[in-house]
Design a protein around this nucleic acid. Sequence first.
DNA 1: AGAGAGATTTCCT
DNA 2: GGAAATCTCTCTT
Length: 207
Amino acid sequence: MRRVKREFFAQPTLVAARRLLGMELVHETAAGVAAGRIVEVEAYMGPGDRAAHSYGGRRTERVRAMWGAPGHAYIYFIYGMHWCCNVVTGPEGVPESVLVRALEPTEGLPLMARRRGLAWPEGGSAPTTAYLRQLTSGPARLCQALAITGEQYGWDLVDSPLYLRHATAPVAADQIEAGPRIGIDYAGPDRDHPWRFWVQGSRHVSR
DNA sequence: AGAGAGATTTCCT
DNA sequence: GGAAATCTCTCTT
């Protein structure tokens, strides 16, 4: 099924971040399969990046997965209610990762709607884009839709029910836009790096 | 369409 | 003790 292998994650983080666009994030559970095409990500560049949880070389229990081998899930809990999912990238021992910020739903849509607390459209009518955006446009929304929580912390995406699928239609370099990351105004000199990447024109980008 | 506040817990000083 | 890589609801324009 074109599952993404270790070598991909070991690429430099800014390269991996761009190449994640167009790939599918998949989670297989007893309730069914839920998946979406990645349309927006952010890179967090390790000890030198004030916005990164590993800034300054911090080795707390929370960031343990970032220090491990690439290809594992770094998942954190924020604002007292939300989970967010990162992919650990770059060389092993360098605590960098890519936050998955938005998906375009591709598989298991009714399941995702149920997990998000949304009623599926009545009478077989096709869901609107505005409706689909509520499913997986945003880092916490997509985790809820795919049932990603602390339970998946540290999972190996190369060999677990949570994984990545290669893009059927890869995103060309000139279709990728870049800009500053969201929600990190506190990061001072690192606030303005263009380390947020998204698919140009996608209506599923978080903003 | 946009602004504002509340939810609620983990992490680190 | 204070802020946080967010989201939702409510109120106003």
